[in-house]
Amino acid sequence: MKTMRYLEVGQMDDLGRLDTPLHRLDARIKMVTVAVFIIAVMSFPRYEVSGLMPLFVFPFALIGVGKIPLGCIYKKVLPALPFALFVGLFNPLIDRDPMLTLGPLALSGGWLSFASILLRFTLTVSAALTLVACTGIHRLCAGLEQLGVPSLFAVQILFLYRYLFVIGDESIRMFRSVQIRSTGSKKLSLRVYCALIGHLLIRSIDRAQRIYRAMVSRGFDGQIRLLHRTQPGWRDAIFLLGWIAFFISVRHRNPARIVGCWLTGEGL
């Protein structure tokens, strides 16, 4: 059993309820900014390494202003890594043309593109996680709805999220009670597994029915109305335009190379 993954969700949600200037920004503005950021990152040519570095300003600044613990973000980047790592690792194997020499060391194009993949991965993932940590799921979903996502889907995410903790607790209790009675083996046999999952499923369906009754008792008519509490103001506009200007300029001119040339005393 993956150790109570959903508990991490609760931690992210606590962060989402902090009150900082970043948290107070309109959720839509933050989503759009992060989307532009991700597109900017992905649009770099595949061998780009140094050009990506200045973009780290964005997640770092958000983490700083939003009072988000750095560890909380980067602890999550690693477990998500394997697939990108797996696919990326083939680049050094396949693309072996030397591309960059550092004294006696020759780096192949594959290694460069591999490094680039890892950088992109870290950038996009940390930006996405930071977005959630500085907004909170309830504001994200309200924002999604305002951006035109069908309200049924926004509500679906909220419900899933709400009952994640309830069903997660239930599954852990059931899993433990099975483990206590099984003879030391950590893995369940398919038979036991299916009974466990089946019971969990039945409990979930029953719960859904009870929730439905509770909803109906309070006048539910098929439509869930979400409260929208924020309206974008001039702060939001500055945030959005400022960062987009930054992304465009970084994408266009590589400040890293300028700094590098200045430090190593070379001409541009």
Partner: peptide, 25 residues
């Protein structure tokens, strides 16, 4: 209308079910 809570709870169920592993014979 029953689908709205049912879908939500089943989403959470899938999430929880993905945390539980079984031995492949």
């Amino acid at each position: 209308d029953r689908l709205i809570p049912l879908m939500g709870v089943l989403g959470a169920f899938v999430f929880a079910a993905q945390m539980i592993n079984f031995a492949i014979p």
